[in-house]
Amino acid sequence: MQLITTLLLVTIRAGTSLLYATLGEVYTERSGILNLGVEGMMMMGALTAFTVVYRTGNLLFGVLAAMLAGGCMALLHAFLSVSMRANQVVSGLSLTLFGTGFASYLGQRLGPAENSFNLTGLTGERFPIIKIPFLGDIPVLSAFLQQDVLTYLLYIIVPLAWFYLYRTRDGLSLRSVGENPRTAAAVGINVTKIRYTYTVLGGMLVGLGGAHLTLAYTPGWSENITGGRGWIVIALVIFSGWNPARAVFGAILFGGINAVQYRMQAAGTVIPASFLNMAPYLLTVIVLAAMTILSRKKKTSFSSPSALGTSFSIEDK
């Protein structure tokens, strides 16, 4: 019982940043925009969050700054892919290259003079773990109730994100733009506005995911802190079938697997570490296969938005 609680606890903690970014990318892709800049936006979010918190000591400012940074980068992507109708893959990839490089550059210049302007190795304010009284002592359940504020916020955001997408009129408009922008435009939906809105919103959530890394999970700035997690997010979006609720399982699976396998190693298990490292990918293959079978039986949909990655103009024939 204790073991399950601990594993769940660390898994949720590890999955938080992934889940924020996945939710963001799900919304972006639902509008038909593929943004491969997640890694870059996360990195910039992580950097700005820590820099602002280090300078101001205010965690809220840090989070807002990270969202702003992610949002601005996504705005650039929206401008290129919606207004300029550029290739979305190229634009997204350049955003990743730019974000990771620029964050590393800034990380060597935004620090205090006494640390030779480096941000690495500094400590700032961080989101503390808040334990909910009484309920936080119940086994298993307590794993959910000993987290930081950003994780608690997810408990509200995930159901909201699902409800908005599937049960509101705006959500329907968003999905229709991603499926068939021409038809959506024909019924009077402003495709450009929707695509801009959700690309920027998506970027803000991705930035927030980055902020969780430097403000809560691994407090402080280190170079290359996201370490490819942005790419895992892209995979998680596919894994979730573009569904915010299912994204939770993906984030937990990928977030938790390291925590779990490191614990098994630390306890001196007989299973080789290389096998444990492989496990999440093996599981992905199984899940993807299961998804295909389920889709074929029409039980549920895992397919991508039909217009994903394509540009749209009202003048097109």
Partner: peptide, 26 residues
């Protein structure tokens, strides 16, 4: 007690491995 991370440089993974060891009583 040894934990392999399969990375030379990954702040997040290294912290996760460290916490796993600390939870083990290190």
């Amino acid at each position: 007690h040894v934990v392999w991370t399969n990375t030379w440089y990954d702040p997040v993974k290294e912290r996760e491995a460290a916490i796993a060891l600390l939870d083990q009583g290190a």
